[in-house]
Design a protein around this nucleic acid. Structure first.
Length: 576
RNA sequence: GCGCCUGUAGCUCAGCUGGAUAGAGCAGCGGUCUUCUAAACCGCAGGUCAGAGGUUCGAGUCCUCUCAGGCGCGCCA
């Protein structure tokens, strides 16, 4: 049950009844406690359109508003705000509802969509590096959230497995032999190949021929190519597993998968009378965009030599996704620099009829990861940071910290905590940021374990679990949230209760905006509300109904935190 | 030249699509552990929202211009 939607509907219909047409109620959580739990801001705008006094109009709306079952008090404030103070008993009732609900009040969407989420998409010619991290983490979180809402989510790992660089890799593979050893470090292998390519003209020629042979379906080249991809994909899978990212081999559909379809894409653009020729290349002119010379942009789909480009592949992918996969919404989680490219591809796809107007094509952009010097994140020596190394460091840093903070536990425990905390901190630091802006990557900040970080949430969860362990040790029945009723007796309980009920509207907002940081912001408020409750309201030392109610609140909080972290792809721990 | 993004407290960032007196976390200062995990909690201080105009009941948010930084714009992805 989306609390905000409930209020929105009630008040909107009151506004309508008051003569305000279909003006939205514009319900939002109140800015300050004295303004109640929620405020409706729509009366001012509606009154303006009607050319009446906003306060008077708000009065009329209140007359039409039947909300006494939900709100204990509704008042008009300022120029025409409606402030809503929710009824404690009603809050408690709704808490009972979500406690009994596996999905914690998040209702399945009335009309589920088929959503394709295109994310991660590393270049298989190289090892995964920090440049792939944000797409992988953000995309995975969005896929989980959309799935949780009941949508059919199809993950697509659009890996780069078909570029010209494969000619050079295959040639080098032939030269150095096919031992697994030579491919142990893909980054080294790539660098060696590149070096040969740049320095040896014969090698370069052979490499270029290899590309042609590969694309022509030459048996030997195909075999080597397949072998190379297997190794590279296995490496990716290792990273995904370690990261707790849900991508599998089944989600991989690389550029090569669209190869046979590319001539048809060009032919269909021609049929749609979009295709033009310029300097031997074929492409689409777009009046909507301009090039460097201030002329209309020309998007090339077929090179003068006959090869295809990424715009072509992306167009083929759109058609596959809307056609074969039946997607009605497609998300592209890539860095913001590709914004213009996608705007152009989407436009062409729509003009050509590859995607009908109802289908939502969305670029989900994100900014760069910067070092603390404000420049793109690199190793100290200026090299690319491998994802594997980064993850190893995350665990090492976390383990050092855990051993220091909580001494005297066994090694297995430290290893488990280090993984959950280290990887969690890394992912959370990324997700908590508004994805559109660049963000400064700093170990000490994300592992400082203070503020809006994964460990703070994990700690809140662990504290709750500890309460239940204590209760069990004492042999007392620890009533859970599904059985015991919740009563509100203290302000801290009330704050926590309202936060718990806002889980559903938060999830809806994340799905609508594709902004995971909204969920992180919510978690921080929820965990904060719990911490305050924890300090102010003794649980095990209280008695009777208060005790069982507080235990129920604890249990419900734990479940919401766990679910929210799970949707972000972050583990929880029974003990830290 | 055209276009996109960014500019908010000393630092790192929010700001729910136009709402009330702009919020957090670090860092700083001051409190709270014989009491369910102090990796915590409570409080104080900190602001010309880059700048200038404009739109209106109301602007960090929308429009115009300026400044600063980043990125992109025909055969790489």
């Amino acid at each position: 049950m989306n609390l905000r939607d409930v209020l929105e509907q009630r008040i909107s219909s009151a506004i309508q009844a008051a003569g305000g047409e279909d003006a939205p109620a514009m319900v939002a959580p109140s800015a300050k406690p004295q303004f109640g739990d929620y405020q409706a801001n729509g009366c001012m705008a509606a009154a303006k359109r009607m050319e009446t006094n906003p306060r008077q109009f708000a009065e009329t709306v209140l007359d039409k508003l039947d909300i006494s079952d939900i709100a204990q008090k509704v008042e008009i404030a300022g120029p025409g705000f409606i402030n809503i103070f929710l009824r404690d008993e009603w809050l408690c009732g709704r808490l009972g509802d979500i406690a009994a609900d596996e999905k914690l009040g998040v209702a399945a969407k009335a009309q589920p969509q088929t959503v394709v989420v295109d994310y991660s998409s590393p270049n298989l010619a190289k090892e995964m590096h920090v440049g792939h991290l944000r797409s992988t983490i953000i995309g995975d979180a969005l896929a989980r959230v959309l799935e949780f809402l009941g949508n059919k989510v199809i993950r697509q790992n659009h890996v780069g497995d078909w570029g010209t660089q494969f000619g050079m890799l295959l040639t080098h593979l032939d030269e150095v032999g096919q031992s697994g050893e030579s491919l142990a470090d893909l980054e080294d292998f790539y660098r060696d190949s590149k070096k040969r390519f740049d320095e040896d003209e014969d090698f370069a020629d052979t490499a270029r021929q290899a590309v042609v042979k590969l694309q022509a379906g030459d048996e030997h080249c195909r075999e080597n190519w397949r072998r190379f991809l297997d190794i590279s994909l296995a490496h990716c899978q290792e990273v995904y597993d370690l990261l707790g990212v849900q991508l599998t081999a089944a989600d991989v559909r690389g550029e090569s998968a669209y190869n046979d379809d590319l001539p048809r894409v060009v032919a269909d653009l021609d049929t749609a009378t979009l295709l033009a020729e310029s300097q031997g290349a074929r492409g689409v002119f777009l009046d909507e965009f301009k090039n460097k010379d201030d002329e209309r942009a020309f998007i090339i789909v077929e090179k003068s030599g006959g090869g295809y480009l990424y715009a072509t592949t992306d167009l083929a992918a759109i058609r596959y996704r809307t056609g074969e996969l039946g997607a009605t919404r497609i998300l592209y989680v890539t860095d913001s620099r590709q914004g213009q490219h996608f705007a152009q591809v989407f436009l062409i796809a729509q003009k050509a009829g590859f995607a009908s107007p109802e289908i939502s094509l969305e670029h989900v952009p994100f900014g760069m990861m910067l070092g603390d010097d404000g420049k793109p994140f690199k190793t100290r020596t200026g090299g690319t940071v491998k994802l594997m190394d980064l993850l190893a460091q995350a665990r090492a840093e976390a383990e050092e910290l855990v051993r220091r903070k909580t001494p005297g536990l066994d090694d297995d425990h430290y290893a488990a905590v280090a993984k959950a905390v280290g990887i969690g901190a890394l992912k959370y630091a990324d997700l908590a940021q508004n994805r559109t802006s660049d963000y400064v990557f700093a170990w000490d900040k994300m592992l400082s374990l203070e503020g809006n970080t994964a460990p703070y949430m994990q700690y809140a969860y662990a504290r709750i679990r500890s309460i239940f362990r204590k209760a069990a040790e004492a042999g007392e029945p620890a009533a859970d949230s599904q059985e015991a009723g919740i009563v509100i007796t203290a302000p801290a309980e009330r704050n926590l209760a309202v936060k718990l009920l806002q889980f559903a509207e938060t999830i809806d907002a994340v799905a609508a905006t594709t902004m995971p940081n909204i969920l992180c912001g919510y978690l921080f408020e929820l965990a904060g509300a719990f911490m305050s409750f924890y300090e102010a309201c003794p649980v095990l030392k209280s008695h009777g109904q208060t005790r069982s109610s507080r235990l129920a609140l604890c249990d419900l909080t734990a479940r919401v935190i766990q679910k929210a972290l799970e949707l972000l792809g972050i583990e929880t721990l029974e003990q830290m």
